[in-house]
Each structure stands twice: as C-alpha cells, then as structure tokens.
Nucleic acid binder design. Sequence first.
DNA 1: CGACTTACCTACTCTGGAGTAAGGCTACGT
DNA 2: ACGTAGCCTTACTCCAGAGTAGGTAAGTCG
Lengths: 245, 245
Amino acid sequence: MASPTSLPSSPPAGSAAGANIEPSDKPGRAKRLPREVRERQILDAAVTVFSQHGYHGASMDEVSEVAGISKPMIYAYLGSKEDLFSACIHREATCLLEAIVAGIHPGQPADVQLWHGLRSFFGFVGEHRESWRVLHRQSLAQGGPFTEELMSMRQRAITLVAAVLVRTGNDEGVGHAASRSGEALAAALVGAGESLADWWLDHPQESADLIAVRLMNLVWMGFGDLVEDRVWKPPAEPAEPAAQP
Amino acid sequence: MASPTSLPSSPPAGSAAGANIEPSDKPGRAKRLPREVRERQILDAAVTVFSQHGYHGASMDEVSEVAGISKPMIYAYLGSKEDLFSACIHREATCLLEAIVAGIHPGQPADVQLWHGLRSFFGFVGEHRESWRVLHRQSLAQGGPFTEELMSMRQRAITLVAAVLVRTGNDEGVGHAASRSGEALAAALVGAGESLADWWLDHPQESADLIAVRLMNLVWMGFGDLVEDRVWKPPAEPAEPAAQP
DNA sequence: CGACTTACCTACTCTGGAGTAAGGCTACGT
DNA sequence: ACGTAGCCTTACTCCAGAGTAGGTAAGTCG
C-alpha cells in the first residue's frame, strides 16, 4: 500500500545533502563506513519511519531496512528504541532552532526581525515536513519523557522571541503594554506558530511565505488592536465571562 | 508511575452522568447489564485509555480492566481494536458537533452566533479533555483510516460556520469580501479553533471563556483589519519573498 | 420445572517486534 | 604478513499483546 503522505519526501534536517551513499542491492554486506556517517543515516531513517507510523507503530526492523543496515548496528550506536526517538527529537529541534537564529539579524526593527524569524521557521518546516511531524505531532502524541525535549525547545524559542520583542521595546515597534509582558506575548506567538505549522501539514498546497505573512498579519495587526484597546467584547449576558485578556 | 496528566479526569462525552455502576471488588463475575450500557462503559474506558497512551500504546487488556469487564466482551460488542478506536472517534465527534449546534441560536447577528458557537466548543473541550485528545491529537497521529472520520467532522463544522457567516452576510457583520469566500474564512476559523484547543490541552490553567474571547478577538478584529485592507506588508528587500535563501 | 437466550468468564494460541549472542569481514598499523 | 580494532551480519530469545475456544452463570418464557 502507498504511504498516506504522497508528497515528495523531503529529507530530514540533519542529512547531508551532498554525500548520499546509495546502498547496493547486494543483500549481503554493506560498505564499511565511519560511525559518524552511519549514525546520521540511521537518524534520517528513524525520522522518516517515526513520522509515518508514530513511535509505537514504527518497528526497529523497518528503521534498519530504510537505513540500509542491520538492526544490531542501531542498538550499538544509538541504544534502545526510546533513545533513538529522543535522539531524533533532539537533533531536529536543534536544527530547527539554528535555522531560525540564522535568519534573524539583530539591530533591525522588531517587526522585521519577527518576519525573518517566521520565514525561517516556516521555510524549515516546509522543507523538512517529516522533521516537523515527528518533532511536534508524534512527540506530543506520546505523553512520556519525550515531551520534555520539546518543551525545552519551545522555551528556547520563547526566550528568543521575547528578546526580539523587548530589545527593540520602547521604539514604535511594540507598545508599552507589550514590552511589559514580552514573555507572555512571545509564548502566544510561538504557540500560534506551532499550531499553524501543524495545520499546514494537512494543507500543503499553501506556500511557506503565505503562511508566514498570514501569521504576521494576525499577530502584528491583532496585537496592535489589542494594545490600542480595540477589543471585541462579548454581549452583556446573565453569566459573566472573565474580563478582557 | 503516575499518569502524565494529573488533572482531574473529566468523563468522556458519551458517558451517562447519573447511573454509574461501581464494579464490585469481587474478582469473579460482573453484574449482568444490558448490552447498551456495557457498550457505553467500554467506549468510555477506551476513550480514557486511548487518550493516555495513543492507539498503538493502548492495550485491549487495559481497556477491559478500566471498563470493569473481560476482554472477550469488547470483541463481542465492538469488534477489533481498530473498530473500537473508530467507534470512539465517531461517538466523540458526534457529541462535540451536537454541543456546538445546541449553543447556536439562528436569527442573532453573526458575531453573537459565532461567539456562542465558540463558547460551546471550548466548553465541551474543557469538560471532555480526554475526548478532545483522542479525537484530535491521537487520530491525527495515526495517519490511517481514522483521519477520515475526523475530516468528516471538520467538514461539517466548516459548513456550519460558513452558514452562520453567509446567512447574516450582507449585514454589517461581515464585509462583502468575507461573504464572497465564506467557506474559506470558515475553514480558517475552524482550523484556528482546533489548533487553539490543542494548545489549550497543554495550558489548562486558562479558562474556556478566556480562550474563546481570545480567538474571537483575533478572528473578528483580525479579519476586520483584513477586510478594511489594513494589512501588514513585508519590507522591500533585495531577495524576493518567493525565492529561497 | 426445563429449554433457550444472553451476558460473562478463564485460559489459552500465536504473531510481531524489541533486544541480544556470537561470530565473520575489512582496513589499517607495524 | 598478521594482529587488532571496529564495522557488520545472521540467527536467535523472549515477551507483550491481539484475538479466540469453549464453558459457566443468570435471567426469561413455555
């Protein structure tokens, strides 16, 4: 049966684009390669398989087959299945954050920095859909120790965004209400970005830039309204909801 | 080990709140009950277990234990594990949609109808976190035939929202640009709601109404800006937005 | 009271898949 | 050449968990 994702399979984030060793069809022995290279191949394969079947659904046999290597190598290099999954999450999260940081140039106004950060983020997700799938969706679906790795990444992202917001704070970029609670705003923005990227997985026809512009609009204009106190209020009612955000 | 979700466990959506038969500690035979009741109990247990461990991670033995009944009963009444999971999704999706529909009163202005729909939605998710978790997160994590059930629900929700937007269309509620593409707007709103609810799973300290107000603000004011052509534009740049870095 | 239906159970079978033991092959140093 | 370090494999063990066979209690209708 065909894979449910019929998109052209983008490579996981850590794979070296240049030196791809095609495994010979010879069923016997694989060519000897240094450990470093094999580990990367194994992680690539693991990301692919995990993103398709989820943690429990994936089998180490399939990972080994996709990696073009036998199963004991995986255990020798990366440890148990749980370790392997953690390693995947860690590598992909690191790559993602590096990509975002690389896109931001300090000194520019806040909205420009934010725009570049968002473009980098969605660009990464677009080019490494498997990575994002395993990073966000699959690691969330397993409630276990994997979530911590993700939470750590999220926290680093929030700190990064908050720094962007606050550093250029008292300019015209962000109002005083925003700079007072930069962390909270950053959390909201990061959450929105994650969710939007997740939604994007199921609507791949949109372009990365379009997605980024949309979020930028929503956040920048939306928050602008909120700062200017242009809030929509619920109609007066017997049961009173909580006060404004 | 303790469950990762330390929240007070809310009952799944289909459970009858009143007639809860406590299974006697007698390890032997359970009290004879009509099939209808048992099926509901089994489904309740299944939602709980699936929401905690995911589809693959859950075991039929645990479901049977939580349901207070032996495993063959599950197979006799609900069929295979796959069937059971599908039944869960179907039941929860139906309950959710019914809750939303019940909250909407036609004839009111669009924003009020939307507001009530959102409140019903987030109210449901808040009271049945397990249901939402299995409905959205777990069914998305398994790419298989389960997604269809979810897509069907999403489509019904989009149609519902689009009807609300269009029916009250040429009033002051929604601009002409909106009523022209009500379906697309509805899709965006539903997607935003889903994502926000999913985000909410990980931030349970917020109240349902606060979440609903936030989304309402973002959507209503945000779309208002868009309709009035107040869009944020990316800065002029050497590299065109379409090209990749 | 039997006869019959329906709810319910214990105690299995069997397969998929995690993890391992034990040993071959290859490259490089000397 | 020849040892040794490290890459790589076949061929297992073993267990969790899906699904079932076959039998027992408890109501219900004549």
